[in-house]
Write a protein that binds this DNA or RNA. Sequence first.
DNA 1: TCTGTAATACAACGTTAGTTGTTTAAACGT
DNA 2: ACGTTTAAACAACTAACGTTGTATTACAGA
Lengths: 206, 206
Amino acid sequence: MPISDCEVRDPRIRRTRQALQGALRELMQTKGFDEISVQDITDLADVNRATFYDHYNDKFGLLNAMVAGSFHKLLAERDILFDGTCPSAASAIILATCDYLTTSHASAECNRNSAFEPLMEASIVAAIKHTILKGVHDKAAPDGLTPEIIANTAAWAIYGAVKQWFYTPNHAPASDAVKPLLTLVFPVLMKITSPNVPAEAELVAR
Amino acid sequence: MPISDCEVRDPRIRRTRQALQGALRELMQTKGFDEISVQDITDLADVNRATFYDHYNDKFGLLNAMVAGSFHKLLAERDILFDGTCPSAASAIILATCDYLTTSHASAECNRNSAFEPLMEASIVAAIKHTILKGVHDKAAPDGLTPEIIANTAAWAIYGAVKQWFYTPNHAPASDAVKPLLTLVFPVLMKITSPNVPAEAELVAR
DNA sequence: TCTGTAATACAACGTTAGTTGTTTAAACGT
DNA sequence: ACGTTTAAACAACTAACGTTGTATTACAGA
């Protein structure tokens, strides 16, 4: 029965989890995620295999915690705070996502496993959403929408945009890609403060 | 070594795959996805377990094929064709996604498995993207963007929006939810034909 | 410092996964 | 109708999974 990762007091738990995450990180330098067994991880971390299951449901749970943790850290380091109106904060989120995708793929190449990518993605999207929500949770939203819906939509849109950018052959460097991607997703975020964007005019006239 | 699902001539292959998909579908009525073993599936489908691996890489591969297939079918039945400008087609896609999420959750409740949901989601998003791309792949896109990027962003945004709607307690019925969700994601799609939406003005002035 | 709580170590278990090689039989072109 | 092609059946195997129970040891509060 795994316990939440945030605010763990007991140093034993922190040590064990750090060891497991460190081991997985190290193993992923050389192997693909699907070639790594729980045994491999616990051997390297010098932790009993059964103990692993006290902390994570499975290999994917560990991956999830790792990705969420490091992406959150990346965002925190850059001191990103989005207040619902400032495009530069949105840019920073997009850039961070670009960077994260790039570096994480550089270390862990070739994960042809069918389950690997969607899981990483879910973790990243959750982190983006969380960051957006921190800034807008107390703002207003137009009828039928909520800050949560908008934040989630934006988070998914951002990740989808960055992902497609990333998988485009010979894509522009991240710093150049941010601006066009921002124009794409920013209208979604704008719904928080200005419910009516002009495209609306065409919608009601459908 | 699994073979593509589209256009399978050999009736033996079709029969086997249908049997496997049917079996999984039936098992998911009562069990969670993670409680179902490949053995269970092949037993019910009256197929040898080794044969399973001639068709799918693993359980997730089968799930993927099922979801993609049925969601595509749902879209095809409703005769959805999105030309990049018509909001009603976009509405139809959103509505279909709402419906699909609702029905698929009704049959397969409680899949607390960490890997299950992200995989289904990836399949659905891929299907949405495919539908959008059919309509816009030959259209123009503003600098730094491509029809693919826009389609992917829109697909992720749509799924993210619908998902959050779905998980909102006491959410409005799908038919009522479509309109607000549409106002949220339509600006993204609009980039295909009208590169400059007014929010842009604020962006360059940052 | 002491004590109850809670995490880890360890061993052993049954189950499932995924692979391989061979045999049988259905499908297809001619 | 015949022979070729190719999918499915089957058995057997290794390796990894996830669980269970008990003993040990580290932590946190008093």
